[in-house]
C-alpha cells in the first residue's frame, strides 16, 4: 500500500480544498434540489417536500420546447458558420504572409475581448441602420462574432504546429486540393475543430447579453430562464431545465477535454 502517513495531505489543507469545492458546486447542487421541491412560489429552505411532478410539467410546457429548439438551432448554425469562417481565417493567417495579417488576427479576436454589451449595442444599431428585421438570423449573426474567435484560436494553434510541407508532400504525391484537405489537413486539425466547435456551441447556448440586443420577440433558453425567474409560477420548471442542460452539456465538455489532450499527442508525434 502506498497510502502511508507521509503522502496524505494535512488536515487543514483537506478542509480548505473541500470548502473550496463546496463553494464552487453547492449552488449547482441547490438548483438540483429545488427541481424536486413541492413548493412553486418561492425558493423556501428547507424544501417542504419532494416530488418529481415538475419533470412531467416541464415536458408538457410548449414554451420550454420552443426556447430549447431555438437555442439548439442558433448554437448549431453559429457553430457551423464559425467552423467554416474560423478555419479559413486561421489557414490564411498561419499559412501565408500578407499585408495587414497581424491586424486581421487582432480584429478576429477582438469580439471576445470586448464586453458583450458593446458587441450587442453595435450589432443592434447596425441592424437598425441596415433595416434588417430581428429574427433567428440576427441572433445567429451576433453569436457567430464570438464563436468564430473560439474556432479560430483552436485552429490557428494547430495549423502553426502542423508542418507546411505536409500539404506540399500530399500534392507532390498526386493528391489534388480536395484530397489533400480530406486526407491530410482535416485529420491534422480535426480534433482542434471539434474542441473549438464544442466550445463555440456551449458559448452560444448560454449567451444572454448579445442575445437580448439581437433577438426580437424570440427567447433562447437563457432568456426564457431569466423571464421565468421573474414570474412566481411553476418556478421549479426552470430548475428542471437547468439540471437537464447541466447534465447534457457536461458530456461534450468532457469529450472535448479528452479529444484535445489526445490531439496534442498526435500533433507532437511527428516532430
Amino acid at each position: 500500500m502506498r497510502a502511508d502517513r507521509n503522502e496524505r495531505a494535512p488536515l487543514p489543507l483537506t478542509i480548505a480544498a473541500a470548502a473550496g469545492l463546496l463553494f464552487l458546486h453547492l449552488p449547482i447542487l441547490l438548483i438540483f434540489v429545488y427541481a424536486f421541491t413541492t413548493e412553486d412560489k418561492s425558493y423556501a429552505w428547507p424544501p417542504p417536500g419532494f416530488t418529481t411532478k415538475w419533470f412531467a410539467v416541464t415536458w408538457n410546457r410548449p414554451d420550454v420546447w420552443e426556447a430549447l429548439t431555438l437555442s439548439v438551432k442558433v448554437a448549431s448554425i453559429s457553430t457551423a458558420v464559425a467552423l467554416v469562417l474560423g478555419t479559413l481565417c486561421a489557414a490564411a493567417v498561419s499559412r501565408t504572409k500578407f499585408f495587414g495579417r497581424e491586424t486581421i488576427s487582432l480584429l478576429v479576436i477582438l469580439p471576445i475581448a470586448l464586453p458583450g454589451i458593446i458587441t450587442g449595442i453595435a450589432l443592434r444599431s447596425a441592424f437598425s441602420l441596415a433595416e434588417i428585421p430581428f429574427s433567428t438570423w440576427t441572433i445567429v449573426l451576433g453569436h457567430a462574432t464570438f464563436c468564430v474567435v473560439v474556432v479560430y484560436n483552436n485552429a490557428v494553434a494547430r495549423f502553426r504546429r502542423t508542418s507546411a510541407s505536409l500539404i506540399e508532400a500530399s500534392m507532390d504525391l498526386g493528391a489534388d486540393g480536395f484530397q489533400t484537405f480530406r486526407y491530410v489537413i482535416l485529420p491534422n486539425i480535426g480534433t482542434a475543430l471539434l474542441a473549438g466547435g464544442m466550445l463555440a456551441f456551449a458559448l452560444s447556448f448560454d449567451e444572454v447579453i448579445v442575445t437580448t440586443f439581437t433577438a426580437g420577440q424570440q427567447a433562447t433558453l437563457p432568456i426564457w430562464m431569466l423571464e421565468e425567474l421573474v414570474r412566481p409560477r411553476q418556478r421549479p420548471v426552470t430548475n428542471v431545465v437547468a439540471m437537464v442542460v447541466v447534465i447534457v452539456t457536461f458530456l461534450p465538455i468532457l469529450a472535448a477535454f479528452y479529444l484535445t489532450r489526445d490531439g496534442d499527442q498526435i500533433a507532437g508525434a511527428g516532430k
Binding site: 508542418s163 506540399e168 508532400a169 507532390d172 504525391l173 508525434a269 511527428g270
Partner: peptide, 14 residues
C-alpha cells in the same frame, strides 16, 4: 510525374 523527398521528410503524423 515527379516526386520529392523533403528536407524535414514531411511524413504524415496521423
Amino acid at each position: 510525374n515527379v516526386n520529392t523527398v523533403f528536407q524535414d521528410y514531411a511524413l504524415f503524423p496521423h
